[in-house]
Design a protein around this nucleic acid. Structure first.
Lengths: 237, 237
DNA sequence: CGCTACCGTCACAGCACTGTCACGGAACGC
DNA sequence: GCGTTCCGTGACAGTGCTGTGACGGTAGCG
């Protein structure tokens, strides 16, 4: 299956002819395409295997596009998923509301194929469209989301569930500082309430777990700001 | 100046009436707006103080919008800068090419203000809910807000939290003199009360932190006025 | 049921950082 | 020149932030 590495686009649209047209053009452009006409089914499929980009129709039978969009934006896992809304020209007002709800872009029917593809490319380029399944690594550490395994310098590490998610999150955004609030939202979930200092404790447990004797600390503390996955270089050559 | 911390939008457009309209609406939305009709000038201004978002007209006198866009995309510092292109309806084909060149979105004239603002919000939200992501640099110093790192001449500097915010503020408005009150409002916050002289002390700490031996002082004292991030040349050329 | 692994919270200590002051020197006006 | 205003500098006490160990609670499992 060579197309497992292609960018994966999910079309949520119930007009069959339009789907056929889109599928044809997008596959010609080298995308892997799946589709569904049902909002609920879309939600489960996205949960199972999040696409790199979502083409979302405004009018849907079971669940409206905007509602689906809202639900996706509530989940940490799909918060950054690029979404393009498809609307009829007359519904442009709603489309504007759609953007504020969380869609990244919209396009009005009828549209030219080139315009759509250009927008898709722009969005994918921006979101760095790297397939999500790859192993994550930084410095001498490696995390495999599929097998749920973490390795540093050849030796396997044992992490608790939260430590694992924490490390995975940091590995996805290396060298970037996150406040305790950011970390809570991303790792614990948007509407869970825990004390910000809890992050400190788990950072400590993570450090203890991944830092063997004589190994450098990969987690950098930035006072009054948060934490980052980064080498704590005091000086540079 | 209460708007120094607002998201900063640069408009590159030579039709004065349109600029006036845009400026009015965007400022009402809480953005700080600057504009220029010249592509070359835009480039220098972006280099000096990168905006959070760029509104870019396709037709420009000296340098075409698409050329400006291409140049910006070539530089690492502005590669992620969100760009919205403004084009006339008839030029839609070009706009598509514009997207492939590196613009993030385009909108065809005439457009509704709400549609534009919605797109702006979507872009700013996507580029990190905190609208500050681009690296800032001046002379031989570089500050990365994302990784919270400051580098001068290849060596990493260690700054305290306040020193960091202070430097970041000055880097966003280089070569501009700010009174102690301005600095307090922007860096400490509008309703925090501290003695104006406190700024002096932190300026000193900042100087000590960033000025290595044999390096020029980047912070210029303007007697009876305040401070500026600028090379201290004894006399004007 | 008891055991284990893990989680969230807290208290406390150490230390980096902060705001303020006093002093002396520099810059300026006359 | 002198007086005044302004700024650089070092010191210092108070504050706030983080690392750390400990503790009670819970879910899963045999």
């Amino acid at each position: 299956m060579s197309d497992l590495n292609k960018p994966y686009i999910l079309i949520v649209e119930d007009e069959a002819p339009l789907v056929t047209l889109l599928r044809y053009n997008l596959e010609k452009q080298g995308f892997r395409v799946e589709d569904t006409g049902d909002g609920g089914e879309a939600l489960t499929r996205i949960t199972e295997a999040p696409p790199d980009l979502l083409l979302l129709d405004w009018m849907l039978p079971t669940m409206s596009g905007i509602e689906l969009c809202r639900q996706l934006r509530r989940r940490p896992a799909t918060r950054a998923l690029p979404i393009i809304m498809l609307t009829a020209r007359a519904e442009e007002q709603d489309a504007v509301r759609g953007l504020d709800t969380g869609a990244d872009d919209y396009i009005t029917k009828p549209f030219s194929t080139e315009a759509l593809i250009a927008r898709i490319r722009a969005l994918l380029r921006r979101s760095g469209s790297v397939p999500q399944k790859l192993k994550l690594n930084f410095h001498d550490i490696s995390l495999d989301p599929a097998s749920h395994r973490v390795i540093r310098n050849g030796r396997a590490l044992h992490l608790g569930p939260t430590e694992f998610r924490l490390l995975e999150f940091f590995l996805r955004h290396p060298k970037r500082v996150f406040s305790r609030e950011d970390v809570l939202n991303a790792v614990w979930g948007r509407d869970i309430h825990v004390e910000p200092r809890t992050v400190d404790v788990h950072i400590r447990r993570l450090r203890k777990a991944i830092n063997g004797p004589g190994e450098v600390d990969i987690v950098r503390t930035v006072r009054a700001a948060g934490y980052a996955l980064d080498l704590d270089l005091g000086e540079v050559a």
